[in-house]
Computed example of a mutant assay.
Amino acid sequence: MLYFIPTPIGNLNDISFRALELLKTCKVFLCEDTRVSKSLLLSLSNKFQIDFKTKKMIAFHTHNEKEILKNLDQDFFSQDIAFLSDAGMPGISDPGYALVDFALKNNIEFEVLPGANAALVALVSSALCEKEFIFIGFLANKGRERQKDIQRALNHIYPSIIYESPKRILSLVEQIASIDENREIFAIKEISKKFETKFKGSAKKVFDQLKEANLNGEWVLVISKNNQNLNSNSLLEGDILELDIPLKTKSKLLAKINGKTPKEIYTKLLLSQN
């Protein structure tokens, strides 16, 4: 049997009893990073006084998964195998999707255990979602594609969940504020760890808070839904922002619908592209 085992995203106590039992019994581990998995087993062993014994660990990640799956013999899956990403739920902005797809296509028995997930913790903590939401994960790192990703998130009629690194969280919130400074957002870092920290408010308010904050740690950002009337035939700011036209022209069009000056908008658009 193939088992996809979620691992703690911060607090070791979040590991489930069933996960611990499978970590003991499975002899082969497919790991996003074998070093991280070895360190996790050592920490769990020390905390819960468990002897996990020696495991065969095989690196399995986005850079080598196609090659490994192409060369795997079906008999390989006759044994109990655990798949581990570095932290959290496999397949959610982590490796795992390709292996699940392979198992489905080849009638390989597998189970996905429930467990820790940063996106859902952030969403519930934000109080910005009553029912539907959109999970985006990581945005493009830079350039025009990143700007498009941010604009799409702001256009969604449901709250959007974004993962971000400490290096880019401040610029991300700054870009959101430059487009819609009053949009309500929620930012959380170091989920379930000792220094878990939360910020909530308008994009401008959160940006001002983050400028004075310690940004170390992994971040999750929740953006409130777009409350504009999407069923009307009127042109939305997002529609204009996505047009492939000169910034000056874009600024003039935006000025006509939001009451700001073209110069002010042009300055913000230039800032958002950096």
Rank of each mutant, 00 (worst) to 15 (best):
I5H: 00
I5Q: 00
I5S: 00
G10N: 08
D14H: 02
L22G: 14
K27H: 09
V28S: 05
V28G: 04
L30E: 05
C31V: 04
E32P: 00
E32W: 07
K38V: 02
L40S: 09
L44D: 04
L44I: 06
T54W: 02
K55S: 03
N64S: 04
E65Y: 01
K66Q: 13
I68P: 02
N71I: 05
Q74H: 11
D75P: 09
D80Q: 15
L84W: 00
G91L: 00
G91S: 01
S93Q: 03
D94R: 01
P95M: 04
V100Y: 09
V100A: 13
F102Y: 15
N106V: 05
N107T: 12
E109M: 07
E109S: 15
E111M: 11
E111F: 07
L113P: 13
A116P: 15
N117Q: 09
N117C: 15
N117H: 01
L120Y: 00
S126L: 04
E132K: 13
F133R: 01
L139I: 05
L139H: 12
R146L: 02
K148N: 14
Q151C: 04
R152S: 06
R152W: 07
L154H: 08
Y158G: 15
S160D: 05
Y163G: 07
S165C: 09
P166S: 10
K167A: 08
K167L: 13
R168K: 14
R168S: 05
I169N: 05
S171M: 11
L172N: 05
S178R: 07
I185W: 08
I185M: 13
K189N: 13
I191R: 00
K193D: 08
K194R: 15
E196H: 01
T197S: 13
A203L: 08
K205V: 09
V206H: 12
V206T: 13
F207R: 15
Q209R: 12
N214T: 10
L215P: 06
L215K: 12
N216T: 05
V222Q: 05
I223T: 04
S224L: 06
Q228T: 13
N229P: 05
L230M: 11
N231D: 12
S232W: 03
S232H: 08
S234R: 14
L235H: 13
L236Q: 15
D239W: 03
I240V: 14
L243P: 06
L243C: 13
S251H: 11
K252F: 03
L253I: 14
L254N: 13
L254P: 09
A255T: 14
K256V: 05
K263C: 04
I265D: 06
T267L: 14
K268Y: 07
K268T: 09
K268I: 04
Q273L: 15
